[in-house]
Design a protein around this nucleic acid. Structure first.
Length: 467
DNA sequence: TCTTCTCGCACGTTTGAATTGA
DNA sequence: ATCAATTCAAACGTGCGAGAAG
């Protein structure tokens, strides 16, 4: 399964009309990213993937695993993931199907998950599957652990960004490519709504093995709720009937039946899956509301163009104080979903703030660190070098406030600190309403040249990640 | 009344320290 | 003394289900 790819520079934000050069305009245009376990993802997607989000943070399942190729073995790359809203709606589960329940809530602080191995040479990313197992989702907008913050009952899809950069300092100056996989879109929930999803999760997630019917769970279940065994039996029976075996056709059919505004035709070719993912998605309603619904899942060339255009929106100023103010109290008019979606199909971005989230456990990257070690590409930084970056960036890491380092920003500005992501600094990060409203005009791309570092410091590191 | 969220629970997996043996 | 293999317990991840909250 290949992704939808978009490429642009982190600092160059030309209007969409200037895209035609596209990926070919860059030397890195041959980078290829494929999703691991596409069939598993599809089986979830066909039902309508749901991801649990909790206060302490919950891993994704299936978790994102990708394969990369086309990277330059000796060049270093940084790999990032963020979650973007699929549309501007809030959903509710009603009678075995998802329905639109109103406008989406203002977007929470946008965070970008930095793969713990980053930065690593291309050879490292290429030689093995890149896993985002440790990525966690939370609904706690005040999360201090660096987890990706989402709203419940909203639809998102992960975006993968690969940046050629020797270190975090140079990310801003680097060309990055963005990949999305239509089948990885999901609905964030605090409790599973679709029993078919529950069943699939239990069947495939080793951590949920205890809930499988053939396991010892029957004993536990009997003990758990002796008062109403019939209810439990009913549910189990329901689940077993829903998926006696892994039969995608059955699941697919039933799932489509379960969605409002379902699509009758399902594309079968892989190409169509890439470009017109919504056609096999159970998320039919998007079509119906397409006239004012933003989607990052382009159904065709036109939509694809829109998608690219979105990617090119320069970032708003990023700052912490306003994120909570806006989000929690009074979202700026321009950040409202309706206004942002209207016409341009562009979701709100002014209320979104780029942030970088990393896994707290640096141990996770240790093995790969050693693997990276002696590279045929010449001198490499000492083992653990790249971990320093993850550590430095992990400013929201609980219990380790000390890792909040300031030196990371010295290349940009003497005064600039990680406060850009984690702390207030209103002076450097003016409120969104100070920004030009028309981000498609070249005039706003005053950071195009690298001359003015101070100016650059006013933009989020990963400017493309949130809007 | 309904929907959504939170919390504690039991069970399984993972991980790393401690122990054992070669 | 060193190293590898094994054991074990704690930490972690999971869905369930009851109850709270709005």
């Amino acid at each position: 399964m290949q992704s939808i790819r978009d490429m642009k520079s982190n600092f160059i934000a030309p209007p969409s009309s200037s895209i035609p050069g596209g990926p070919d305009a860059y030397h890195q245009g041959n980078i290829r990213m494929t999703l691991e376990d596409p069939e598993l993802w599809k089986s979830f997607h066909e039902i309508g993937t749901e991801m649990i989000i909790t206060k302490p943070g919950r891993r994704m399942f299936p978790h994102c695993k990708i394969n990369l190729s086309g990277l330059m073995p000796c060049s270093k790359y940084i790999l990032l993931v963020d979650m973007v809203p699929v549309d501007g709606f809030r959903y509710k589960w009603n009678k075995e199907k998802w329905e639109v329940a109103g406008k989406a809530e203002p977007q929470p602080p946008c965070r970008t998950y930095l793969h713990p191995d980053s930065p690593a040479p291309g050879s490292h990313w290429i030689k093995q599957t890149v896993s985002f197992l440790k990525l966690k989702l939370t609904n706690n907008t005040l999360d201090q652990h660096g987890h990706i913050i989402l709203h419940s009952m909203h639809r998102y899809h992960p975006r993968f960004h690969i940046v050629q950069a020797d270190d975090m300092y140079s990310v801003r100056w680097s060309v990055f490519q963005t990949f999305t996989f239509p089948e990885t879109s999901f609905t964030s929930v605090t409790a599973y709504q679709n029993t078919k999803i529950t069943k699939l999760k239990i069947d495939h997630n080793p951590f949920a093995k205890g809930f499988r019917d053939e396991g010892t769970n029957t004993k536990r279940r009997a003990n758990r709720n002796p008062a109403c065994p019939e209810k439990k039996a009913k549910k189990i029976d329901c689940l077993s009937r829903e998926s006696d075996e892994d039969s995608p056709p059955d699941i697919r059919r039933s799932s489509f039946e379960g969605y409002e505004g379902e699509q009758a035709e399902l594309p079968k070719t892989k190409e169509e899956e890439v470009v017109k993912e919504e056609r096999y998605s159970p998320w039919g309603p998007e079509r119906e509301h397409g006239h004012h619904v933003r989607t990052d899942s382009p159904p065709g060339p036109d939509a694809r163009e829109m998608y690219n255009a979105e990617q090119l929106v320069p970032a708003p100023a990023s700052y912490q104080p306003y994120r909570f103010h806006e989000y929690g109290k009074s979202p700026s008019p321009s950040s409202s979903v309706g206004s942002s979606n209207g016409g341009s199909g562009r979701a709100s971005f002014e209320s979104r703030v780029s942030d970088v989230a990393t896994v707290p456990e640096h141990e996770a990257s240790k093995p790969s660190t050693h693997e990276i070690g002696p590279s045929p590409c010449g001198p490499q930084p000492p083992a653990g070098h790249h971990q320093d970056y993850t550590g430095v960036l992990n400013m929201t890491q609980a219990g380790k406030p000390g890792v909040l380092s300031h030196h990371i920003y010295t290349p940009y500005s003497a005064e600039q600190t990680l406060g850009q992501w984690s702390g207030p600094n209103p002076v450097q990060y003016p409120p969104p309403h100070h920004l030009p409203s028309d981000y498609s005009t070249p005039a706003v791309h005053h950071g195009y040249h690298h001359g003015n570092v101070a100016e650059w410091s006013q933009y989020p590191l990963f400017s493309y990640s949130c809007w």
